[in-house]
C-alpha cells in the first residue's frame, strides 16, 4: 500500500486550472440537468397525474425504464445513437457534450418527474376542490393553486437531486466530456500521482456537494418556518 502521498502537483497552476475547469464543467452539467430536467420532467409528471391511461402508461414506462437501468448504459447508448462528430463551441467538444447532456437530461427528468409528482400529490386535495368549486378550470387550478404550493415540497428534494447528479456526472469520463473526472485523468497522465488525484477528486466533489446540502437544509428549515408563522 502506498502510504506517503505527494500533493506537490497542487503547486502547479496549470494542473490546478485543469482541475477547476473540470469542476466547472461538472457543476455546469449538473445545473443544466436539474434546471432543464425540471422543465422536461413536468411532462411525464403531469401525464402520470392526468388519470388518462393513454397518457399515464407511456409516462410510467418511461420513468420505470430510466430509473431501472444504469446511467452508464443510457449515456453510452445515447452517445452511440446520436453519433455527433467532434466540433467545438466555446472550447467545448460538442461531439461528446451534446449526447452527454441529452442522456443526463433524459435521466434526470425521469427522477425529477417523480419528485414533482410526489410534490403535487402532497398538496391537500381540498385545495383543488376549493379552486374547482370557484369555477377555475383544471389547468388554471394546477398553475395558480397546486404548483405554487407543490414547489415548497419539490424544492428541497430537487436540491438532493442536484447533489446526486453532481456525483453522477463522473460517468461522463467514459464518453470524454471534460468534466472533473476527465481532467483528473489528464493530470494523472502528466504527474502519475494517481492516489493523490483520486483523493483530490473526492475532495473537489465534496467541495460542491457539502455546501449545497447545507444550503438546502437551511432553505428547508426556512420553508418550514414560513409555514408555521
Amino acid at each position: 500500500m502506498k502510504v506517503f502521498l505527494n500533493f506537490s502537483f497542487l503547486r502547479d497552476a496549470d494542473y490546478l486550472a485543469l482541475l477547476f475547469q473540470g469542476l466547472g464543467m461538472t457543476l455546469f452539467l449538473a445545473f443544466l440537468a436539474v434546471a432543464l430536467g425540471s422543465i422536461l420532467a413536468l411532462i411525464p409528471a403531469l401525464m402520470r397525474l392526468s388519470g388518462k391511461k393513454f397518457l399515464s402508461i407511456p409516462a410510467t414506462a418511461y420513468v420505470e425504464i430510466i430509473r431501472g437501468t444504469p446511467l452508464l448504459v443510457q449515456v453510452l447508448l445515447i452517445y452511440q445513437l446520436l453519433n455527433i462528430p467532434l466540433f467545438l463551441i466555446g472550447g467545448i467538444d460538442m461531439g461528446s457534450f451534446v449526447p452527454g447532456l441529452v442522456a443526463l437530461l433524459i435521466n434526470s427528468s425521469a427522477y425529477i418527474s417523480e419528485i414533482i409528482r410526489g410534490g403535487i400529490l402532497a398538496v391537500d386535495r381540498g385545495q383543488t376542490e376549493a379552486a374547482r368549486s370557484l369555477g377555475m378550470s383544471a389547468s388554471l387550478t394546477m398553475r395558480k393553486i397546486v404548483l405554487p404550493q407543490a414547489v415548497k415540497n419539490i424544492f428541497p428534494a430537487l436540491g438532493n437531486e442536484f447533489v446526486t447528479i453532481i456525483k453522477e456526472t463522473s460517468i461522463f469520463v467514459y464518453v470524454g466530456v471534460a468534466e472533473l473526472m476527465y481532467q483528473i485523468g489528464v493530470v494523472k497522465g502528466m504527474t502519475l500521482a494517481v492516489t493523490e488525484l483520486y483523493v483530490m477528486a473526492g475532495i473537489l466533489y465534496l467541495m460542491l456537494t457539502y455546501p449545497l446540502s447545507k444550503l438546502m437544509n437551511a432553505f428547508e428549515r426556512r420553508m418550514r418556518h414560513a409555514d408555521a408563522k
Binding site: G126, E129, S133, L134, K144, Q149
Partner: peptide, 30 residues
C-alpha cells in the same frame, strides 16, 4: 360551478395567497 358557491369543513383557503387574493383570484381569472 361558478354559480354554486361551496364552503368546506376544512376551509381550504389558499395558504400561499393573502385574504384579499384568496377572494379576488377567481373573480379576476374566471
Amino acid at each position: 360551478r361558478e354559480k354554486m358557491g361551496m364552503v368546506f369543513q376544512s376551509f381550504n383557503l389558499f395558504p400561499h395567497l393573502s385574504v384579499l387574493e384568496n377572494i379576488t383570484l377567481s373573480p379576476r381569472l374566471v
